[in-house]
Simulated scan of single mutants.
Amino acid sequence: MARRHDFSVWYRAKHFPSGVVPHETDRMTFPIDDLAHALFVTGRAPADRAAHGATSLYEWLHRVALVPAYLRMAPGGRLMRSDLARELDRSEKVALSYTLGQAMTGIFSERILSVRFLMHVDRYAGRHGLAFDPSSKKRADLFGQKRDGGWVVAEAKGRSGTADWKLEQAMISQKGTIKSIDGVAPDFTFGCAAHFPKLNDGSEPLAILAIDPPDFEPDAIDLGISLDKFTQAYYEPFLVALEEGGRRAVSGDFVVAHYDAFNMRIGMLRSVIERVERANSGFVSGIHHDVTTLLDELVPEERPAGQFLDGTMVKTDWAATMNQDDWSEFYFVEKF
C-alpha cells in the first residue's frame, strides 16, 4: 500500500522479454526521496575534483531544487507540474522535462529492473578518459549494473506533452548504440520517457513509457570499462556531497551530511566510504568486489524510505511543499 507521501506514476512497458515486467501497464509507487537520489546518480557533471572542484555537487543541488520548485503531489499520489513550471518558457520546459526523464529512468531501473548502480555515460567517460567515435552523435544516456551483475543501457527522454510515435522511434534508435559493456552484452537496452499526457478531466499527471526493442544500431559500440573504475566513479559524487555538506554526523551504519537550506540529508554506509577512500588513495583494484560484498551483507531487501540498493541515503523534508495546491485548476482523484 502506498504511504501518504508516495508518488503514484503509471508506466507502459513495451517489448521487454517475457516475465521481466509483470504487466505491460502498471504503476510504481515511490517516496519523494527516490527522486532526489535518482537526480544525483543520473547527473552528468564530472567528479574529478582536481579539475572541477565540487562541480558535481553544485550540479546536483541545482537538479534537486527542481523538485520542490516545479513538482507537486496531487490527490491519489499523481505527480504534477506546479503552476510555476507551466509558466516557464519553452527552453526551460525542455530542460525540466529532460531532467525528469533521467530521474524517472533511474527510478524505473531500480524498482522494476533491480539496477543497483546507474551512471551517465558521459560522467564515466569524462572521469576516465573514455573516447567515442566523433562521427556519431547518437549515444545512450545511461548505463548501469543490476544486483545480479547484468548490465543495462538506457536512453532517457522527457516531454512536456504526450509521448508520440516520433519519440518512440528516437528511443529505439539511441538505446541500441552500445552493444556490450566490459565485453558483455547488456541484459536490457531500453528507452524510457517521462511525459505528461492530458487526461479526460484536463489534468496532466506524469507517466512513463519504457521500450526495449531487440535490435542494435549498425554502428553500435563496445563500451570498454573497468568494473573497479566504474564503482569508484559511481561513489565519488557522494563523497563530495558528504565532505562539502554542513553538519556531518553518524547515524547507525551511515555517515550523514545535513543540507539544511534544502531540507535534505545525504548519507553513505561508513564501510563503503572507507573502501572508496582507499581507492582514491590508489587502491582501486578489487573495489567492485569489496563494495558489492558489503552491500549484499548490509543492505536489506526491504529498506526504509530514503535508503537505496547502492548503500546510500537521501532523505528530504519536502512534504509540505509538494502537497501545495498550486499545480492546476483540476483536482484529479484517481478511482480504483
Rank of each mutant, 00 (worst) to 15 (best):
A2H: 11
R4P: 00
W10M: 07
Y11T: 03
K14I: 14
V20A: 03
H23Y: 06
T25F: 07
T25M: 02
D26V: 03
R27H: 14
R27A: 13
T29S: 12
T29P: 01
F30V: 01
F30N: 02
D34A: 07
A36T: 02
H37P: 01
A50V: 15
G53K: 08
A54V: 03
T55K: 15
W60Y: 14
L61M: 02
H62N: 00
V67W: 02
P75D: 03
L79Q: 01
D83H: 06
E87P: 01
E87I: 03
L88G: 13
D89M: 07
K93W: 02
A95L: 06
A95P: 04
S97D: 08
A103F: 01
E110Y: 00
E110C: 00
F117W: 10
M119L: 10
H120Y: 02
Y124H: 05
A125C: 12
G129K: 03
D133H: 09
D133Y: 02
L142D: 07
G144N: 10
K146P: 06
R147S: 05
V153R: 11
A154P: 09
G161C: 09
A163S: 10
L167Y: 10
A170R: 11
I172G: 00
S173W: 00
G176F: 06
S180Y: 14
G183A: 03
A185E: 11
F190R: 01
C192K: 13
K198V: 11
L199A: 01
G202K: 11
S203G: 05
E204K: 14
L206I: 03
A210I: 06
I211E: 11
I211C: 12
E217W: 03
D222S: 13
L227K: 14
L227P: 12
D228C: 11
Q232M: 15
Y234C: 03
Y234L: 08
V240H: 12
A241P: 02
V250C: 06
D253F: 13
D253N: 13
V255P: 04
F262H: 04
R265S: 12
M268F: 06
S271I: 10
S271Y: 01
V272D: 00
I273S: 05
R275P: 06
A279V: 05
A279T: 07
I287F: 03
E297R: 06
P300F: 05
E302P: 01
G306R: 10
F308L: 13
F308H: 09
L309T: 05
W318G: 05
A319C: 09
A319L: 10
F330D: 00
K335I: 08
